[in-house]
Design a protein around this nucleic acid. Structure first.
Lengths: 62, 62
DNA sequence: CTTTTTTGTCAATTATATATGGCAAAAAAT
DNA sequence: ATTTTTTGCCATATATAATTGACAAAAAAG
């Protein structure tokens, strides 16, 4: 559903590296990428910033 | 910071009406509009849909 | 093939988003 | 000026996001 994994791989980052950059646990990134739950807005914004994109591009789809 | 209040008023909705449409308590809308906390992504998406806009427009700023 | 890295998932715990009820102040309506 | 509606805020309670540690499987590297 979301495009976090796609953008993360484009930046050459591992889940662990992305998690470190946005100050969450690696598991949190894994769960988000698999649409296993519902992250907070602030976390979404941080991820968008680190992946050089925006909320609509990462989470805008259905 | 965010533009929920602005878009809500444009649609002629009260906090209570918006809360009802997105299935949360009125207080939740009040807190979000005043940037008093950090809503979930799903709630942000529902609000965007009801207000006929998108994540970037509502929450994209800083 | 063997070793190392990366990822998915589980269980238990902690932090915090959201709910509920209520009250006062501001705004709008009469 | 008075009444009604709308909003901000304060408690307490509940649901769930996020943490931590650990293990196995898949993928990548050697």
């Amino acid at each position: 559903m979301n495009k976090v994994k796609s953008y993360r791989l484009n930046q050459g980052l591992t889940q662990t590296q992305l998690a470190y950059k946005v100050n969450v646990a690696r598991q949190t990134i894994s769960l988000i990428e698999n649409d296993k739950y519902n992250p907070s807005l602030n976390l979404c914004k941080q991820i968008a910033k680190v992946l050089h994109t925006d909320l609509n591009s990462l989470f805008g789809g259905n």
